[in-house]
Design a protein around this nucleic acid. Structure first.
Length: 516
DNA sequence: ATAGGGTTAG
């Protein structure tokens, strides 16, 4: 063009942004500034969408100062884009500041800040803000609902999720695939796969994400057979091509469902190249998990050594878990050495190694792991559990003394413990990492957050009603035992969602087959 | 003429 104006520059930047060419978009923006063309509100709103990822944040901050100079910080489109940039960079306080500084709000700016919290896993904040903004008159649209549903998935807040679903139905929105995908995911992660499947079956159109969300649901519930069947159906329908997440979901479904052979078949078919999806390191990780679960710890170890990738902490971690379950101390030690080199700051690794030593009665080594943790000053992510009762989320930390009904809850844990001991419960003291006497250890075990939440659930619901508990970390062996015996003695279904999967416990038997 | 927020993962 012999001449360009702000519109020509912006249109071109927008074209690059929309196609995902972030660095080209940013380069063009710099060229624009050099050419002396003054960016306007359209330009800023556009170019900020390319400021994500590793080096995006520095650019975003610099662009922010240009925006301030241009006095466009309070512009609703620019502001939304700006706060989204900060949120995606993990700078949620900066995002919130921009949001609060906006002279007017609309559904997009509100959704941007809600989803900002949700994407960072600050699910309660996201929910709180959604409720407040809705009280203040925000008219949600399908993107808003999809965003808040993400937060509700994280919280496993089924009753809240149903309410949002009701809102959606009443608002008579057209059936957006994105929104239905969110609903599938929400119901699955809240433990209600029947609802997920109903929504899935009623969709007139499905994206690959619809299939993936459903597959992940089956996988997290240990329903390998259903996952494989759905995967087959996807192939037969042949409308949507599976992607790398589809394979991750079905492979981990096989793993959690105890279908090692089927999982390996699928992996080798991927390797053959006829699926059009090449296995990535995460898929190799699923195979390690499959082999480990089957007790083929040595084979898994060899598999890692001949992978075309450098093993990650997640892969070593998965094998260490297998060593713990199958009590293979020899390989476990080698694996732990590798793992602690790559990821010395992850407390979970030490916990599993310590459990492994404890299961073999190697108490001096247990002590050594504990000292190693102290030396490296590893900070354990605080374990917490929660339960939803009457549309309220009740959160518990270990030995929590903050809950208003704590006395009752502690008493109930004591009662449960005494009663299930008659049925054979023996506290697994090897789950305690601290060097204290046995009585103290048992006391600490009884203070674990999931036991408090479970006890609270039994107190707050009528006999025979299932109890749903959610835990932010992997559940420990002792709490798993405890929950199994409670389900048996008290005749309650216990559904326990931990960091990795659902434990569906009925009559003392857990759907995870004691491998997790 | 050019513009902002969204769903699935090991």
């Amino acid at each position: 063009m012999p001449e360009r104006n702000v519109v020509s520059w912006t249109a071109m930047i927008s074209a690059y942004s929309q196609r995902g060419y972030a660095s080209e978009a940013l380069n063009l923006f710099v060229q624009m500034l050099r050419s002396g063309t003054e960016p306007n509100e359209f330009t800023f709103a556009t170019v900020l969408t390319s400021c994500t990822g590793a080096f995006g944040f520095d650019n975003g901050r610099q662009i922010h100062s240009l925006i301030i100079k241009s006095r466009l910080e309070s512009h609703i489109y620019v502001g939304s884009s700006l706060l989204d940039m900060y949120a995606k960079a993990g700078k949620i306080h900066e995002a919130r500041e921009v949001f609060e500084g906006l002279p007017e709000r609309d559904v997009v700016s509100c959704t941007a800040i809600i989803s900002g919290y949700a994407q960072l896993g600050l699910d309660e904040k996201a929910l709180e803000l959604f409720c407040r903004l809705q009280r203040e008159g925000m008219i949600s649209n399908y993107v808003t609902y999809a965003s808040v549903l993400t937060a509700l998935s994280g919280l496993a807040a089924l009753e809240h999720g149903k309410q949002v679903h009701n809102h959606v139905l009443r608002s008579e929105l057209p059936s957006y695939v994105v929104l239905q995908n969110s609903l599938i995911d929400m119901y699955a992660k809240c433990g209600n796969l029947i609802y997920s499947r109903r929504i899935f079956d009623n969709m007139s159109e499905r994206s690959v994400i619809s299939w993936n969300a459903m597959l992940v649901g089956y996988s997290k519930h240990g329903m390998g057979k259903e996952a494989v069947e759905l995967f087959k159906l996807m192939g037969q329908e042949n409308k949507v091509q599976p992607d790398s997440i589809t394979f991750l979901a079905v492979l981990s479904g096989c793993s959690h469902g105890g279908m090692e052979d089927r999982g390996l078949e699928i992996f080798y078919e991927m390797l053959s190249g006829k699926d059009g999806v090449e296995p990535e390191i995460e898929h190799y990780g699923c195979v390690v998990d499959l082999l480990g679960r089957a007790g083929l710890v040595e084979k898994a170890f060899k598999f890692i050594k001949q992978m075309p990738f450098e093993p990650t902490a997640a892969i070593w971690g998965s094998l260490l878990g297998a060593c713990r379950v199958h009590r293979n101390v020899d390989i476990g030690e080698v694996v732990a050495n590798q793992l602690l080199q790559i990821e010395p700051e992850n407390a979970g690794n030490y916990v599993i190694l310590s459990n492994l030593y404890a299961s073999a009665g190697r108490w001096e080594d247990v002590g050594r792991v504990r000292e190693l943790m102290n030396e490296k000053a590893v900070i354990k992510e605080p374990g917490m559990s929660w339960i939803e009762l009457n549309e309220t989320l009740h959160t518990f930390h270990a030995s929590d003394r903050s809950h208003p009904r704590r006395e009752e809850v502690f008493a109930k844990v004591g009662e449960l413990s005494a009663k299930i001991k008659e049925a054979g419960y023996a506290p697994d003291l090897s789950c305690v990492l601290y060097d204290v006497d046995e009585e103290q250890k048992e006391k600490m075990l009884l203070g674990h957050s999931e036991k408090l939440a479970l006890a609270f659930g039994l107190l707050g619901t009528p006999e025979g009603k299932p109890v749903r508990v959610i835990k932010n970390l992997r559940i420990c062996v002792d709490c798993h035992n405890f929950a199994k015996l409670v389900s048996k003695v008290y005749r309650r279904e216990v559904s326990l969602r931990d960091k990795n999967r659902f434990h569906h416990i009925v009559g003392g038997i857990c759907s995870c087959g004691d491998y997790w």
